[in-house]
Amino acid sequence: MIEVAGLTKRFGESVQALAGIDLTVQPGEVVCLIGPSGSGKSTLLRSINFLEVPSSGLVRVAGKRVGFREGGGRDRRLGGRELAAQRAEIGMVFQLFHLWPHKTALENVILGLVEVRGMALADAARLGHELMAKVDLAEKMDAYPEHLSGGQRQRVAIARALAMRPKVMLFDEPTSALDPELVGEVLAVMEKVAAEGMTMVVATHEMGFARRVSDRVVFMDQGRIIEQGPPEQIFGSAQSERLKRFLDRVLV
C-alpha cells in the first residue's frame, strides 16, 4: 500500500533529516514508528503525502508515485490539482491537531467532503454525524475547536481525515501534545480505526500502543531505520545497542 525507497531529505546544507529510508507497508498493516526526537519520524510521514518534498528517493501510495509523474526518463512534479487529488487519498493527523478555528467541529469534519469531493451539504452532514459518533463526539458537533479539550480536538481531526475515506492514515505523534489523562481516548479511537482494517503509519512515543496495536514496529534514529520487526521482537529481544538504549530510557 505504501512503498518508500531510498528516501532522503536534507534541510539546508547541514541537516540530514532522512538518510535513505526503505519501507513497505502492506494493505491493512499498522506500522508504528518509534525513536528519539529528531530521528526523522515526522519528516518521513510528511514526505509520504508530500508536505515535505524529498531530496531524493521515491514514495508510492496504492501504486501511484506521490508528487511526481513518471515517464519519458524524467520525473515531473505534479501540478496543484493532481497533487491535491493524491493527498485526498492519504489521511493525516497532526501532533498539534491543526483544526480550523473558524469552523465548528462538524464543519471541520465535512469541509473536505464539500470542497474537495463536491458532496451536497446534507449528505456530507449525514456522513459527518456518523464520523462524529464514531469518535464519540456526537454531542459536540456544534462546538468550535477552542471550546474542546485537546483529546476532543484530536478526535475531531481523526474524523476529519477519515471523512475523505483515505487509503492510508498517517499519524504524526497524535498524542504528544495531550495531557496524560486525555491520551487514552485518542488511542482508543485509533485502535478502533486499526481494527477496521485501515492501513496506518503512526509516529508515536506511546510504547504501550505500539506493542498492543501495531503489526510491525520500526525504530528510527538519525534519519535511518535501525531495526524493525513485530512488537514482541522489538520490545522483547532488541538487537541493536541504540534500540536497547532507547527502550531503557522510555520504558521506565
Binding site: 487519498e89 498539534l96 491543526h98 478555528p101 475523505m164
Partner: peptide, 23 residues
Amino acid sequence: VPRGQIEAAQAVGMTWPRILRTI
C-alpha cells in the same frame, strides 16, 4: 494564519485557491 492549518487543508486535498477562500 498558522502554517499548520494550511497543511491540514492540503492534507485533505484542497488546492491553493480553495485553501485561500475557505481557510
